[in-house]
Structure formats: structure tokens, C-alpha cells
Computed example of a mutant assay.
Amino acid sequence: MTHDPNGAPPGGVLERLTAALGAEGSRRGPPPVERWNPDYCGEIPMRIAADGTWHYNGSPISRPALVKLFSTILRRDPDGRTVLVTPVERVGIEVEDAAFLAVELAVEGAGEARAIAFRTNLDDVVPLDDAHPLRFERDPEGGFKPYIAVRHGLWARVTRALTYDLVELCEEREEGGESWFGLAAGGRFHRIARTSELS
């Protein structure tokens, strides 16, 4: 194991972050990370793998409660860096794909009145709405990977199984003189791709 650049022993960063969270523990609701702007203290050897597992110093973090705790102080800064932030410390971590995975889907209604909500692997419940839009990226095989905005600039990648469920709800529409394949939900039509790109 390597030592912290500030001289703390291995695990010291995690202990400091946990202690800072403990000081905020009496606060109800999620920590107000959008209001915390301490100095940036550099990167720590923490990584969120593409499969959603969290690693520290090359080893998976085996305590789910600790991962959930750290996820509450995660945000994406305007410079694109993903950080863990407390009132006194801000440290960068590596994210291979997305900070979260969307692992469960609930659907009610039809058309633009359809309500869709996702549950992440860390138990955030996220409605599909203007504050939590979908975005789509091409995968190496030429398909599309959907992501849902969660909070503080962070996204959840929708699992392959849920992607198939979403595709079942999709339709083609004419918009702006073009034919689009997309999903009606949350009061609007979420464009995925031009129909011509799918043929």
C-alpha cells in the first residue's frame, strides 16, 4: 500500500472523510455538497469501476454502507473532475464510466404522461424529468448506452437489461421535419437517434 502524499498512513484519507461526514451526521437529508468549496487536495487512489464497484488502493471496498456514505459526498466539478467533498477537503477520484448504475425501473402510464423512475445500485431513486434527463451514447458495437442524470453532475448508466425494457417503450416520431426514434415520458419526447441512423 502507498502512503498518502500528505503523510497520512494508508486509509488515512478514508478515515478523515468518514470523520468529516460524522460531524455532519446530525443533519437531516443529503449533505449540501453544492455549497462546500474547500481547496482541492489532489487525487486519492479510489476508483469506481464500470460495473459500479468502488475500489481503494486497488482493492474493492467491501462495506456497502461505507460506499453509500461516500456516494453522498460525490459530485462532478465544473472542470469535469469527479470529487469527494466535505466542508474541509476535496479530493479527486477515477470514474471508469458513470458514478452509478441504474438497476431497477418503474413505469406508470403511457405517452408523454408516462412516469418513469430508476433505482440506482446505491438506492438513489431518480424520476425521469427535466431535472433528471436521459442522454445516449454510442457503444463500441454501434448500439446506444442510456444514462440518467442523478445529482450534482453525476450520471447513472442504465444496465443492458433495463435498456431492453426502455426500447420496448420507444416509438418513432416526426419532429422538426425529421423522423426520430425516442421515448415519451416525463412530459416530453426524449430523442435517442434519427430513424435513418438505425436502418
Rank of each mutant, 00 (worst) to 15 (best):
R151Y: 12
A193T: 05
R47M: 11
P32T: 14
G109T: 13
E137P: 09
A99R: 08
I73V: 15
Y164V: 10
R28G: 14
E172L: 05
I48N: 03
E34K: 12
T82N: 11
H152W: 14
C41K: 11
R194C: 00
I61A: 03
P32N: 15
Y56F: 14
E96G: 10
S199T: 06
L66W: 02
I44P: 05
F118A: 12
P31E: 00
E168S: 05
E137T: 11
G7D: 03
V95G: 05
R138Y: 05
H55K: 05
I93C: 02
V107L: 06
K68F: 05
A23R: 15
P31S: 03
G153S: 08
S199V: 06
I116M: 09
R194M: 06
R47Q: 12
H132V: 01
L128I: 06
R16Q: 14
A161L: 04
E96V: 11
W36T: 03
I148P: 13
E34R: 13
P64W: 13
P5C: 04
L166K: 00
N6Q: 14
L21F: 03
A117Q: 11
F118K: 08
M46T: 07
R114F: 08
R151C: 10
Y56K: 04
G111E: 12
S196Y: 00
L74Q: 06
G143R: 02
L169K: 03
A98Q: 15
S71F: 11
W54P: 01
V67Y: 01
T53F: 15
E24Q: 15
L14P: 01
S199F: 07
T2F: 12
T18Q: 05
P64T: 12
Y56S: 04
C41R: 14
V67D: 00
A161R: 04
V67T: 09
D77E: 12
L74A: 12
R35Q: 12
G29P: 02
V125I: 13
Y164T: 07
T159N: 01
Y164E: 07
S59E: 15
A131V: 02
D51M: 01
